[in-house]
């Protein structure tokens, strides 16, 4: 177990280092950091002094090492647009994005998994076919257009739910703010989380269905039927458990993707999260925010993958116990 976890952790660190290299390259070489930080009237001497102070004249590996150590301490430099430390900007917006992502992920899993199991087990039933058709429409509608349709229907026409913002938020602890505790916060959460979760939900449903169909054709399921086991045991103890391995992988990836897709949803609903800030950074070439966002999403992704790998370990005995 420990060897397995160490190996995975090592791989995760390598991935993070590569991403850090990318972020660093972007940070250092796209545009001149000094030009972004000073006005036009700054003299060449002053610029050179700033370069020296920022360490931009040091050898590249030294700069990279400094970048990594600073990033590990959540120091990502200063935003070009806002002239504020990037980490402060992110700290203010992380709760909004994480609450939205969490709600959508929950929605995607709670609705998607049972639908997928049902459609996999009852391949020919009318309800399964309905699920499939709806899911196909779900993956064909671009996320932002779903958002627009929902706003048009529930905000503009029916005026039931707000079309932008987080509603009223309550501070929890020193820096976290939550919308879960107020009525307007919860109302504001409904449309964005459906928008964000719908695509993932259809993907998860289709994936589970496909895996179920595949597992049901294996010899051990046939043998389980030939042993006369009741359908409930065959379907849930044998088939479902065996579909879990691939399903967990993809689901992990999809949950990671939710954070990135939040960019779109946050734009449509003017949700004050990291994604919206990232998009503004892209439009204004605010490189420190971009590279910090890159590192942050990569970290979340790698962390999720690591957890998935550890989950495997508990599901699949072939990883846990060696051959004699």
């Amino acid at each position: 177990m420990i060897g397995f976890a160490t190996r995975r952790l090592l791989q995760a660190m390598i991935v993070m280092l590569v991403v850090a290299l990318l972020a660093f390259t972007m940070f250092r070489f796209v545009g001149d950091p000094v030009n972004q930080m000073v006005g036009i009237e700054t003299s060449i001497e002053e610029r050179e002094a700033l370069r020296e102070r920022l360490g931009l004249n040091d050898p590249i590996p030294v700069q990279f090492f400094r970048f990594v150590t600073q990033a590990a301490q959540f120091n990502f430099g200063t935003s070009y647009q806002f002239r504020q430390p990037v980490s402060d900007l992110f700290a203010k917006r992380i709760p909004a994005t994480l609450e939205l992502s969490f709600t959508s992920a929950l929605f995607a899993l709670v609705v998607g998994i049972p639908m997928g199991i049902y459609a996999g087990l009852n391949r020919e039933s009318a309800v399964s076919k309905l699920f499939l058709s709806v899911s196909l429409i779900g993956i064909s509608l671009p996320t932002f257009f779903i958002g627009i349709l929902l706003i048009f229907l529930f905000s503009v026409t029916l005026q039931w739910l707000p079309s932008f913002g987080r509603g009223e938020v309550v501070p929890v602890g020193s820096w976290w703010t939550t919308g879960f505790l107020t009525v307007s916060g919860l109302k504001a959460l409904i449309l964005p989380s459906i928008t964000l979760g719908l695509y993932q939900m259809t993907l998860i449903m289709r994936l589970i269905r496909a895996e179920m169909l595949e597992v049901i054709r294996t010899d051990y399921i046939k043998f389980a039927r030939a042993r006369g086991l009741p359908d409930r045991l065959v379907n849930f103890r044998h088939a479902l458990k065996n579909t879990l391995v691939p399903v967990i992988t993809i689901t992990g990836l999809q949950l990671g993707a939710i954070i990135a897709f939040a960019t779109i949803t946050e734009t449509v609903f003017q949700w004050p999260g990291m994604g919206l800030m990232f998009l503004q950074a892209v439009q204004n070439v605010d490189i420190p925010i971009m590279s910090a966002y890159l590192l942050l999403t990569a970290f979340l992704f790698v962390a999720i993958n690591f957890i998935v790998d550890i989950l495997y370990f508990f599901i699949d005995p072939r990883l846990r116990v060696g051959r004699p």
């Binding site: 991935v15 990671g256 892209v282 890159l294 990569a298």
Partner: peptide, 10 residues
């Protein structure tokens, strides 16, 4: 590690 949309944005 990065969804398509993020890469394209970057």
């Amino acid at each position: 590690t990065f969804p398509a949309i993020l890469i394209a944005l970057l």
